[in-house]
């Protein structure tokens, strides 16, 4: 699988942990999954750390969307991002339902590995739908790696949804989440913005000159916007143990991430667009 669209490999700022940004598809999936899973099982963490988890989960989703829809889905790139979040909602509900059964400690030090049941359930559903969609005897889409792609999308969608529910509700207890994040309609905002963060990067950047690092920047940028909106929601409702500061910090963090990656993306796009040669209009016969 090719990484990046051409011979032009611009120097990239290494983004922490000694990895060059971004690592290849498998590495990015693994790193994002581990980071998001570690963050999601501690619902007592401050929102800003959970926001890092959301960014990684959505980055993983966007990378899977890019990997899968590179071969042409026939229905446009957005469909698979919507599919991921459709699975994500069901998975998040399963996760929070299981959360209280496998839970250690209370308060800020609570660990809830039970929510990962939702992630596993959606991995299974995603794998089955991928196998059925790719199988010659059933739908027969003939896309290499669709099984893995759909499985990853289900997992990434569930993790992103769980983390966002946990940010807004400040907890992953079933009743609290339903009361503070679902029944007041925040889940609809999360649904739309997270699917935007998954499908929009590749949908907007695809083309002959598409380059993976540049595409993934858009995903991080949209995740920043999502953090700003979640921050406003959090500051307005102020549900967690960390008070209003939690929401305000999340807003500042989101605005910083959005601004940084927006500027970076525009600069990269400008620099790389410079090499496009205009061929002029087709000559008419005199």
């Amino acid at each position: 699988m090719t990484v990046g669209g051409g011979p032009v490999e611009e120097e990239k700022k290494p983004e922490g942990e000694g990895f060059t940004f971004p690592p290849d598809v498998a590495q990015l999936g693994l790193i994002s999954a581990v980071i998001a899973i570690v963050i999601v099982i501690f619902p007592g963490l401050p929102a800003i750390i959970k926001a890092v988890g959301v960014i990684f989960a959505l980055l993983w989703g966007a990378d899977s969307v890019r990997k899968t829809s590179k071969y042409g889905l026939g229905t446009g790139v957005p469909s698979i991002g919507v599919l991921a979040m459709g699975y994500g909602i069901v998975g998040a509900l399963v996760g929070i339902a299981f959360g209280k059964y496998v839970s250690i400690g209370t308060g800020l030090l609570q660990v809830q590995p039970g929510v990962l049941v939702g992630v596993i359930a959606m991995a299974i559903v995603g794998l089955i739908s991928g196998v059925l969609s790719n199988s010659e005897k059933v739908i027969g889409m003939k896309i290499p790696g669709l099984e893995r792609g759909m499985m990853e999308l289900g997992m990434a969608g569930t993790l992103a949804m769980l983390l966002q529910l946990s940010i807004v509700a400040g907890s992953l207890n079933f009743d609290v989440v339903i009361d503070k994040a679902i029944s007041n309609g925040f889940i609809a905002v999360m649904f739309v913005l997270s699917m935007m963060a998954m499908f929009h990067p590749y949908n907007a950047c695809l083309g002959p000159d598409e380059r993976r690092p540049r595409t993934l920047m858009v995903s991080v940028e949209i995740s920043g916007l999502l953090c700003v909106i979640l921050g406003i929601a959090l500051a307005a409702t102020s549900t967690s143990a960390w008070g209003v500061a939690n929401g305000v910090l999340l807003m500042i963090f989101g605005a910083f991430v959005w601004g940084y990656f927006f500027v970076k993306f525009v600069r990269t796009a400008m620099r790389e667009a410079y090499s496009v040669v205009g061929t002029g209009l087709i000559k008419t016969i005199e």
Partner: peptide, 25 residues
């Protein structure tokens, strides 16, 4: 009601998209 609506939408779009893959767009 909200949870039922969002969950119904999630399951519905997943099925609609699988069907869309079947017709190839």
């Amino acid at each position: 009601p909200t949870m039922a609506g969002v969950a119904a939408m999630g399951i519905f779009v997943s099925n609609a998209i699988i069907a869309a893959y079947n017709i190839g767009g």
